[in-house]
Design a protein around this nucleic acid. Structure first.
Lengths: 313, 313
DNA sequence: CTCCTTGCCTGACTAAAGTCAGAGAAGTGG
DNA sequence: CCACTTCTCTGACTTTAGTCAGGCAAGGAG
């Protein structure tokens, strides 16, 4: 497996890496080209501090690159209206032309990877590239507990409410739903996990612990931009593990028939549909799953099945 | 399609490109590390000129890097026994240790791409990487006509004979086969195509033109190292196009039942099995395919079907 | 207002990467 | 033996990339 990854890396940097080097930059340095390209990304220029963050450049270095682009008449830098400390860089017409030339070259280079192949292979290459890109993105997603009042958690909860309001016939009014306020999903009564991709919160989900009663799964949500990356599944697995770690033997949840992807995921994760177990007015499906006891905890020995050792990990 | 490729490039250089940068090099410069790694590739050192070709370095620059590695006791450089001008670089034990440390880091980094993913996704990522690597390799294969006496063509023909000698029960003796000597596969009587990957010949195949009689396909071979890249199919398509360009309406070939992959390829490329049409003693299957007339030539208009326009070209 | 932080800039530096010209030894064809 | 090429090396450069310290102006909290 590792060998495959390394062969891939070698082949790809050999063919694709050539791109980021001197293909793009015409007679300009790579650093300048990158700055030029990044400024033109947004419609109306870009704050210098955003540039610095996006390109991960030293502030002195970036300043010098901007001066050089300014001297070539490709860029103007003016104080921001909102904050006199911040400066905003914008492309001049010449800069925009230069940028689209870079863009054209990048397109040409991309096409040169595909061009020699017959159509069938070409399509397979593009598909495989899509897979790799998605899965490398997925590998950047990190899941960690967060306080429900944390801005990232807040964002996920709001997005969750907004989405079900959009999808439920008749909308969704939190006040009419069963109470699962912020305090409930904090230790020791519960937990809330947030999935982050870089600095963006792309998913979340919570648990409510009910002592000897089954643990309840609440507010599981994945951002549309991150769907298909397995974030939901990973959140679910992590929540189940945390439920098991508290000694919970069963996890259950209520949901609504309009949330078809979620229901499909619950089923394929081993949840079985059960009879109504609460009075949630927005729910029309209820699911339940038995948890394997926490391996680190004090589960009953007999219940614990052998699991195959799962790799070097 | 191009957008997908560019998204892929960006994601991959962001994640993988970090590898070739300062991850590998410990406190050493990247250039030195690359040289160290490359020297250790072969079992017994590496000629300086091969290093230069492999890493595409200026000779002065490479010399300096070698001096620096020599000063650190990682490498020795001695004149080659065969040619006093050439010098051969070898790793010292310390150099070998350093190299395997680099190797270990590369492994760790490769694993860090996979580690965050659950097992299923991990497998899919590795598979997709394999696809991309293979198809990028395939895109580097170039097919061009060559004189059958050219070393590359020679190599392919010899490899072809050696392979069928190995596979045929009772071996293969060219003298007892139907004559298709070097002169036959030269214009104007025929043509021979070679597929090259870098400077290695990885496949070849020839045609014999017989005037109004069907054109004959001969000696189609693909190197084991390049199988699965679609090289055979591309050779076949290119040969068919050249047959059609000479005005040939039909192409045919004889083959042996032990060459199962080839037979499968012929079938899927539209060849149909026909009765014995020659007295080749090593053949036990005969195939034939009608060619669409050469679009650039004087084919009958009615035969020519509409083909969907196939993209940007 | 003062004090502190933030954002951007300049100047002074270093290291890496790479280029170019030419020297000198070794091989090659005539 | 001569003229030529090949291979490697040295010395003298340039450009790119990047770091660090400090300065100055704007904004914000008290």
């Amino acid at each position: 497996m590792i060998d495959q990854v390394r062969r891939f890396n070698r082949r790809v940097t050999q063919r694709v890496g050539a791109l980021d080097d001197h293909f793009l930059a015409r007679d300009r340095s790579l650093g300048e080209s990158r700055v030029l390209w990044e400024i033109g990304l947004g419609a109306d220029g870009c704050d210098v501090r955003r540039l610095r963050a996006a390109l991960d450049l030293d502030s002195g270095y970036l300043s010098r690159l901007l001066r050089s682009l300014e001297a070539d008449g490709l860029v103007t830098v003016e104080p921001s209206a909102a904050d006199g400390r911040v400066r905003t860089a914008r492309l001049t017409p010449a800069g925009a032309a230069e940028r689209s030339e870079i863009d054209r070259r990048a397109d040409d280079h991309a096409w040169s990877l595909l061009a020699p192949l017959p159509e069938g292979q070409r399509q397979r290459l593009v598909d495989a590239m899509g897979q790799v890109e998605r899965l490398l993105t997925a590998a950047l997603v990190e899941i960690a507990p967060a306080d429900p009042a944390d801005p990232a958690a807040e964002h996920c909860l709001q997005a969750y409410y907004a989405e079900i309001d959009r999808r439920f016939a008749g909308g969704f009014d939190p006040a009419r739903s069963r109470r699962a306020g912020l305090d409930d999903m904090r230790p020791p009564h519960g937990v809330y996990l947030v999935a982050r991709l870089g600095d963006e919160a792309v998913g979340g989900g919570g648990l409510l612990f009910h002592g000897d009663e089954p643990t309840e799964l609440k507010r599981l949500w994945v951002s549309p931009s991150a769907r298909g990356l397995g974030v939901g599944r990973r959140l679910l697995a992590e929540l189940e593990a945390r439920a098991a770690a508290t000694g919970s033997r069963t996890i259950r949840l209520d949901t609504n028939h309009t949330l078809t992807e979620a229901i499909a995921m619950y089923r394929s994760a081993g949840y079985r549909e059960v009879d109504r177990f609460n009075d949630e007015r927005y729910a029309d499906h209820w699911f339940e799953k038995d948890l394997a006891p926490d391996p680190s905890g004090a589960g009953e020995p007999g219940v614990r099945g052998d699991r195959p050792s799962s790799g070097p990990g």
